[in-house]
């Protein structure tokens, strides 16, 4: 007897579903203000806390003719978590910032780094970053509003002067912490808030400025 059509699929061995990369485009109100503040300086110095995104390097380099220092702190965080040395992380991060940045900078790009820091480490990093900002310097950060324990990270890619592409992709598992707006403002008490807005991805985008 003949059977027509496609052969019936037999039960396959269960294979893990490929981990998905999810992308969302978000309008940014802070980004134009960040660029505005930085263009006020000739050859601004900018610290990027990673991850290294080729498109962002090109964007900031081209628009601002800046010097961009890239320091992906996630490497240190993953190491501290894996080695169960979380209590040392605040000092590790402060040292890293001190050693990377020889002189004050005009701007800091934090992206999502605060999402993977416990309170003590987040406070220590915020304090270090406030310290390395020049007067009138600006700090741009994105803060998750939902705590989770997943194995992905969000990469923010500058799409245009007023849009960010948020790309969620697989990464080493790290606990993700959520910070309330009040906590964020308290951590950066030495800076004033220029912009604070909730993106469609539920991340809070904040731009701070030093007096």
């Amino acid at each position: 007897m003949f059977r027509w059509g496609a052969r019936e699929r037999t039960a396959d061995v269960e294979t893990p579903a490929p981990r998905r990369i999810v992308e969302t485009l978000s309008a940014s109100r802070a980004l134009p203000k960040l660029l505005n503040a930085l263009t006020a300086h000739e050859s601004p110095r900018l610290l990027d806390l990673g991850p290294v995104v080729g498109a962002n390097v090109s964007f900031f380099g081209e628009r601002l003719s800046c010097k961009l220092m890239i320091e992906d702190l996630r490497v240190d965080i993953v190491k501290a978590v894996q080695e169960k040395r979380l209590e040392e992380l605040p000092a590790i991060l402060s040292d890293r910032i001190r050693s990377t940045v020889p002189e004050p900078v005009h701007g800091v790009l934090c992206w999502d780094i605060f999402d993977v820091l416990d309170r003590a480490s987040a406070r220590a990093l915020a304090e270090s970053l406030c310290g390395i900002l020049r007067p009138q310097g600006v700090l741009h950060g994105l803060f998750s509003t939902k705590a989770s324990n997943d194995d992905s990270r969000t990469k923010f890619i500058v799409e245009s002067e007023s849009a960010l592409r948020c790309r969620r992709e697989p990464a080493e598992p790290l606990p993700r912490y959520a910070l309330q707006t009040g906590e964020i403002n308290k951590m950066f008490a030495g800076l004033s808030t220029v912009e604070s807005v909730l993106l469609v991805t539920h991340a809070r985008e904040v731009l701070f400025k030093k007096a």
């Binding site: 992308e23 995104v53 080729g54 498109a55 490497v75 240190d76 990377t100 890619i157």
Partner: peptide, 11 residues
């Protein structure tokens, strides 16, 4: 640079 390099992402 103070540690090993990290991978780069492009959209």
């Amino acid at each position: 640079p103070s540690a090993a390099p990290t991978p780069v992402t492009h959209p």
